[in-house]
Design a binder for these strands. Structure first.
Length: 588
RNA sequence: GGUCCCAUAGCUCAGCUGGAUAGAGCAACAGAUUUCUAAUCUGUAGGUCAUAGGUUCGAAUCCUAUUGGGAUCACCA
């Protein structure tokens, strides 16, 4: 719409002899209840023109209409100049822009970005909170790709630490040699079961000690199982063969389980980092910081950074005994990742409870003079709550990711069967369809919301399949494909149509916004922008579909035009949904 | 207590760098199918945009304060 802005600048110059910058012109889409497609807000110009908004608008409208051939008409309501663009403009936009092979294909921008997401603990299965993380990370990566970035999807697996030892210990004590093979249980669930068992035993021992007169605090420290777990961690760090072997075995079980969940969710990674490899990193950065005077040492030997001047606190970066803390590790890992890929930007998809941590992490790296630190971004998202409150994996009160996937597929199956839509499907096709629809509903439900807002998930009410949902958009796609399958295959455009109906024009307008929407979503790191866009598109198509006949169009040229328009709509829907990690079926 | 985030219709959410009568979906009610898939479409009803000030020609949007909810301020990760 740059040509309108340019012309408006010209109009102000010609009418009122004032030079404006393009940024001074305020364009917005015309509201549906008014005639026109694009609106110039003219309140600003009234100061210049010293005339009423109505008169100013009318003068400018008249000038623009004469100046710009694409403008076919205008109307003025208060300070709003509503401009109608000619059919020829929309027709041309459709044939040359939207139907062109490279529509919404962005050229590589030469930038590399890393998206780190998922980052699970290997002591328990994934739950709904992880699902939000995975879907967000995957989608943001896809959106950045579509916007021209080279993307590295990374997963930093938290595979060591006291929490892992808890599962291991409980399995040793109560497991009787159980394996995923012997029980048929998914590996991550098996391990998670022992994590919960540990906690039960731990709590029992605490109560026991308390009954002997110990305080809660003492009991928590003295309970035999926690001591054993701590000992196990020390043995792990010392490289005790038996412990390492058990650790490897149980981690493999978990990875096998995670692999299945990732596959069901449709997410993947280019690079895995393991904390067992990285937990000792960062000490050289501590030395570097001490040298540069960014860090300082306290009497006990612990190393700190003073961030009070930045409105934050003093923060520990290395313990007195020389061992790492979380921050030490993350400093080291950030450097490692940069050394590996030299990316321009790096996005951490991590929950908002770590806002403070990342603020500090990025600030420290900047203070250390790391040039690449300015490309770091924390994509913070809100927690997923249940009506009953917070999810607690130690207590087993979580919405399990695998259960959720199953339930979604089951609901999709029930809905589909109730509608009688699966005649002529093979068993395999049915399962595939239920998966596509179930996941479409779940993914859309989680991604349409602004990431930073917390999300309330009611498992009983489940996820809707009607209205503003994934299946609604999938259905629109399927319906288009159905119409197209009834027509002859599309042939290259020989003759162009010369007029458009309002529904067609709205559809062309919406389609044409796809490229800018991708860029908007990429810069804002927000799949929600894509989700809301594709919903608008599906609605625009449904309206068109409802009011205009495609196969029974008035004449052959109109029919061809509408088929092309439908095909283009299906194409954009498919692409946009792919950016959300959602597949669209051919039939449903 | 310090810092950060959130608050829009009964419910779930949009509302871009300030612009028109604050929009969708669900739920409620009323309609549309001998016609390309009704998981659709059309209409009715539903709001003091948490509250109070301020900036502005104009504020849901920006600023300040207050209230409510959440997170964080670990030698846990």
């Amino acid at each position: 719409m740059d040509f309108i802005i340019e012309a408006a600048v010209k109009a102000v110059k010609a009418l009122y002899q004032i030079d404006l910058k393009p940024a001074d012109i305020n364009l917005q889409p015309t509201r549906k209840e008014f005639e026109g497609q694009i609106t110039i807000v003219t309140f600003l110009f009234t100061k210049i023109s010293r005339k009423s908004p109505e008169q100013t608008g009318a003068e400018m409208g008249e000038f623009l209409k004469n100046e710009v051939k694409e403008i076919s008409g205008f109307n003025v309501i208060k300070g709003f100049l509503n401009i109608s663009l000619s059919d020829a403009y929309w027709i041309n936009k459709f044939y040359t822009e939207i139907l062109s092979a490279d529509f919404a294909m962005v050229k590589p921008n030469g930038k590399k970005v890393m998206v780190e997401y998922s980052s699970p603990n290997t002591n328990k299965p994934l739950h709904l909170g992880h699902v939000r993380n995975n879907l967000l990370g995957y989608s943001v990566a896809e959106i950045l790709k579509a916007d021209g970035y080279q993307v590295v999807k990374a997963n930093l697996v938290n595979d060591r630490g006291i929490h892992i030892c808890k599962s291991m210990l409980a399995w040793q004590k109560f497991g009787n040699g159980e394996t995923p093979e012997s029980t048929g249980e998914k590996g991550d669930h098996l391990v998670g079961k022992y994590y919960v068992l540990f906690d039960k035993e731990y709590k029992r021992q605490i109560e026991e000690l308390k009954s002997f007169g110990q305080t809660e605090e003492e009991a928590k420290k003295k309970a035999p199982v926690i001591k054993e777990a701590q000992e196990m961690l020390q043995q792990w760090e010392a490289g005790n063969e038996e412990v390492i072997s058990l650790w490897k075995t149980m981690n493999l079980w978990v990875y096998d389980g995670f692999g299945k969940t990732y596959k069901a969710l449709g997410v993947d990674f280019d690079k895995f980092y393991y904390e067992s490899d990285t937990y000792l990193l960062g000490k050289d950065i501590v030395d570097e910081g001490l040298e540069k005077g960014v860090f300082f040492k306290k009497e006990d030997g612990s190393v700190w950074i003073d961030l009070t001047a930045d409105g934050l606190d003093e923060k520990l970066v290395l313990r007195a005994d020389g061992t790492s803390v979380y921050m030490t590790q993350d400093l080291g890992t950030a450097q490692l990742k940069y050394n590996d890929f030299h990316m321009d930007e790096s996005i951490y998809v991590v929950g908002n409870e770590q806002d403070y941590h990342f603020k500090v992490l990025f600030l420290i790296l900047q203070k250390l003079g790391k040039q690449w630190a300015k490309g770091l971004y924390h994509l913070s998202y809100g927690m997923v709550d249940l009506p009953s409150g917070k999810m607690k994996s130690r207590e087993g009160t979580v919405v399990d990711a695998d259960d959720l996937v199953d339930e979604m597929e089951q609901t999709a199956k029930e809905q589909t069967e109730a509608l009688g839509k699966v005649t002529g499907y093979s068993q395999e096709e049915k399962l595939q369809l239920y998966h596509t629809i179930g996941m479409g509903a779940l993914k859309y439900f989680l991604l349409k919301v602004d990431p930073k807002k917390r999300l309330l998930f009611d498992p009983n009410e489940s996820v809707d399949f009607q209205g503003h949902t994934g299946p609604f958009i999938q259905y629109t796609h399927a319906r288009i494909r159905s119409v197209l399958s009834r027509a002859e295959p599309l042939s290259p455009v020989k003759e162009k149509r010369i007029s458009v109906d309002p529904q067609e024009r709205d559809l062309i307008l919406t389609l044409s916004q796809f490229p800018e929407t991708i860029t908007l979503a990429a810069t804002g790191h927000s799949p929600a922008i894509i989700a809301n866009y594709v919903y608008e598109l599906a609605k625009a198509f449904n309206k068109f579909y409802h009011e205009k006949s495609i196969l029974q169009a008035e004449d052959e040229l109109t029919k061809q035009f509408r088929l092309q328009l439908s095909a283009a709509s299906a194409g954009v829907i498919k692409k946009a949904m792919k950016l959300l990690g959602i597949q669209v079926p051919e039939r449903m």
